[in-house]
Design a protein around this nucleic acid. Sequence first.
DNA 1: TTATATTTAATTGTGTACAATATAATTGTA
DNA 2: TACAATTATATTGTACACAATTAAATATAA
Lengths: 147, 147
Amino acid sequence: MNGDSKDMLKLDNQLCFALYACSKEIISLYKPYLNSHGLTYTQYITLLVLWEQDSLSVSELGNKLLLDSGTLTPLLKKLEKSQLIERVRDKDDERIVKVYLTEKGKMLQDSFLELPQKMFCNSGIKLEEAIDLKAMLNQLLGNIRKL
Amino acid sequence: MNGDSKDMLKLDNQLCFALYACSKEIISLYKPYLNSHGLTYTQYITLLVLWEQDSLSVSELGNKLLLDSGTLTPLLKKLEKSQLIERVRDKDDERIVKVYLTEKGKMLQDSFLELPQKMFCNSGIKLEEAIDLKAMLNQLLGNIRKL
DNA sequence: TTATATTTAATTGTGTACAATATAATTGTA
DNA sequence: TACAATTATATTGTACACAATTAAATATAA
């Protein structure tokens, strides 16, 4: 009984560590591609959201990316400094800062159109498995965020 | 064609983001339990390894946890300050720092014996799914680390 | 309408992560 | 034995990540 409990505490039996490690390792596969454009992974997924829907507020970005203003504010300032986005305080509600892609930011999307395919190949995973895996992750994420 | 490429770039189609988000959210479920013992998640998994096998070097810990000395050195110093471990430079090879659990560090394991079960319930995932999910993650991790 | 509450970003502080570099100890080899 | 190459850890610098707090703007209620 106590032995079972100790077994469950082994690193290799931790689903959470598998997630944590996998996440980091996959992100590290992105780095060569992203670095060559001066981007980090977090900056990249922020751009993914904006390419899909421009002119979001900081909190809307945070809701989609599951990041708070403590992470996003400095990150967005960096993207602004590299002239990929603009941060504009909303005229109607001055609490809100809206984020807009610049022309340079919009154009940058073209450089990444092939990246998902490239990353998929790098991962060496089968399409079926990738679909299953993502479905399970999304369901798990849904469970957690309902709490 | 171009439309497909843009679809693939949507955040919701990114396996990597699902992993990244899931990892963070599950870790956040651990926080209440860990904080009450003054631990972070990374400190916790470091202790998991040491509870399984005491007296590892910094690089051995790093190999298991997929962390480098830049992360581990300050983390281990914090665990040492809270008297859960000791860092001892190896007599035979002075390059090596070995990490030992203190009595207090060994005892602490008892406080966490029920945590895996608790976390599993919190996640709301089915046992079968958790097993499948971990198997897929470990295989993916294996693929990546073979590159 | 004025006081209170809520919302939104920004700031501060702590703790990872990791690349790049530094330093010291050890090993391999001419 | 010297000395170059390697190994192990530590340090530095940059960038998240998030809790807690602050501050400003807006909404709500008495």
